[in-house]
Design a protein around this nucleic acid. Structure first.
Lengths: 202, 202, 202, 202
DNA sequence: TATGAATGAGACTTCATTCAT
DNA sequence: TATGAATGAAGTCTCATTCAT
């Protein structure tokens, strides 16, 4: 997955698409001409590298997701304690909430853009690759928690419980970021999310 | 809010839109002609009641959401214990996961359809109405939990913590429903969700 | 075939297409927007009646052909003697050479536009209908010739010879009309064509 | 005419174009990239030798036509009697009907591809060159016929009659080759064509 | 009030042509 | 000289919206 390199044009197109999304344009309403303008390539060039607009957007999204998760893992590994590792994820989520909304999807129950991804021949492959990143991120966090005695070491059959707990804790935080009515200070929401996680796993 | 009644044509249009979405058509790709066919009305009629396709879909979605939340509240009130009340919500989520994916959004951190809602003049009004439903559902559940001593009565400033906890617990369950790779038995996932909630709030 | 009536829009589109062709625009290079402009209808209207540009042009051509052949038959039946009947066809060909080039195709060895027609589901049906018109025209001419003793009555197996003879005689005339280098007075070419026919069949 | 030599690239391009046409691709829908692929040259190379796609196709077609006519003349000259000379042309037409449809155009009343040729600066020159070939072919046939007393020697003013007769006889045969409904054995059609010619000219 | 035939702006995509290498 | 990656003009077709009935 990581080995597959992209040409400079492909990378420019990906960057253009993500720039558009970051500006708040809905992936479903992006126009080819916008992508071309943003990526500073001709419209035809997009079709030299992708067979359709959908494929270009799907691949851009998935690629971005993969890169984001990879960076998240590095950030988590770069921290030492359980709390710091978890907070790193929360900060990344918070930053992404400002910039765009895609990254969060990985931790979210909803794959709203699946319609897009389904256009993709290697959809499942991509998705599994991303799942592997998520797994590694979670494992790194859990190991620290267990080492520090903050969370209990669970038997095998409860592995899925642990995963649900961290997803829930992250989703609760993400909800506070995205939900327009509630406006909670980021620190308070982070503390609450961390508390949910620790209590659920202790 | 409840007072605003809809004409039979409006209701037919709402029903047509929701039928389409339930069939798996993405709200962004619904065509006016599809709605008209589904609702068994002329295309022009839609513009007699809504100023644009976006408004029709937005209102249909929000109306559906409101009705769903109202029914959820009734179902929750119809149950007696904390556990049963919470499980009723989980079962409703599970059913909706089969039928469509919209309802869940309310509990989800992501308002993926916000582009649609934003076209709506009375967007905030609608949203707040739905939030009020959610609040009432959660309160009913929490009261039972406190009565039964299963969850602690929290001070005011921690109200948002309690809300985040239930949102997280529900989101964790919803994630297990929607995420294609994990396939956990519904009962196991429900038990896990309930456990997360109780631990977080005890 | 003849029973199929066309709506006023369809007829307008047919007329627009034929007007374009009569102006010398090659059927392969006609643009949808040109047709729409010529027919004074919206571009979209064309797709309400035909599934593609190709279908619209094919049907226009075939319809025009059918109408032309029908009129030719009537003109031939309206004349009395063998010579006059045949000359009517020649005059029609001469007129059409001025106006457009399609009609002649029926009498011509080449169905150059067959690429178009092949897009048509009911291509064969149309073609056979036109062939039937051609047959009836030829029969009417031949009967007069036999009555007048100008051409021999042929046995059955030689029916195809007779048909080839008249096609050849007509094609020879048509060639003189279209071939840019030879410029023969129309009357001379007609006399020659008639002479070829009579000699071949006597 | 013969003196104009073509470079190997030009000949490769001509061959590529004719290969495409022989495969049944309509000259109007040929793509430059197809030509390049077929001719095994770069797309840019085509523009080093021709100013446009149209010119390349036109010249390929005309060149092919000229070569075909040249070969036809040689074949006709290679035969001895009137009948054999004429039949050689018929066999060539029959073979070409299998392979492609272009060659026949010369003998046909219709220059359907004239739109192409008109793009050509030296269109008239080309056309006249081909006409000269056709004339020489016909003359060779006629001389034999006169020598054998099968056809009458005509006065000057009737030269065009003789030409029309042979064109008509050939067109009648070509029609039987191309018209999809009639399916006459080749030999029968050839005999009929020959009979038309002899009767017309006796 | 209700309709759906008609519209045309604008989307996606193709492909002839260019030009840096 | 030869190439083919890149371009963008221009094509086909869709579909939200209008309006005469």
């Amino acid at each position: 997955m990581q080995e597959m390199k992209f040409s400079s044009k492909e990378k420019a197109i990906f960057a253009g698409i993500m720039a558009l999304i970051r500006e708040g344009i809905n992936p479903y309403t992006i126009k080819v001409s916008d992508i071309a303008k943003r990526a500073d390539v001709g419209k035809g060039t997009i079709y030299d590298y992708f067979i359709s607009k959908e494929e270009a957007i799907s691949k851009a999204l998935l690629h971005h997701l993969g890169r984001g998760l990879e960076e998240t893992l590095q950030a988590v590994e770069g921290k030492d304690g359980f709390r710091d590792k978890y907070y790193v994820i929360l900060w990344i989520l918070a930053r992404q909430a400002d910039e765009n909304k895609e990254q969060c999807k990985m931790f979210s129950p909803l794959g709203e853009l699946s319609d897009f991804y389904e256009h993709l021949a290697d959809y499942q492959e991509y998705l599994q690759a991303n799942d592997r990143w998520v797994k590694r991120i979670f494992e790194d966090v859990f190991e620290a928690g267990i080492r520090e005695g903050l969370i209990r070491s669970l038997e095998d059959e409860e592995e899925s419980y642990r995963e649900m707990a961290i997803i829930g804790a992250l989703a609760a935080f993400a909800h506070s970021l995205y939900h327009p009515v509630t406006s909670l200070p980021a620190e308070t929401a982070m503390a609450a999310s961390y508390r949910i996680l620790v209590k659920a796993l202790s």
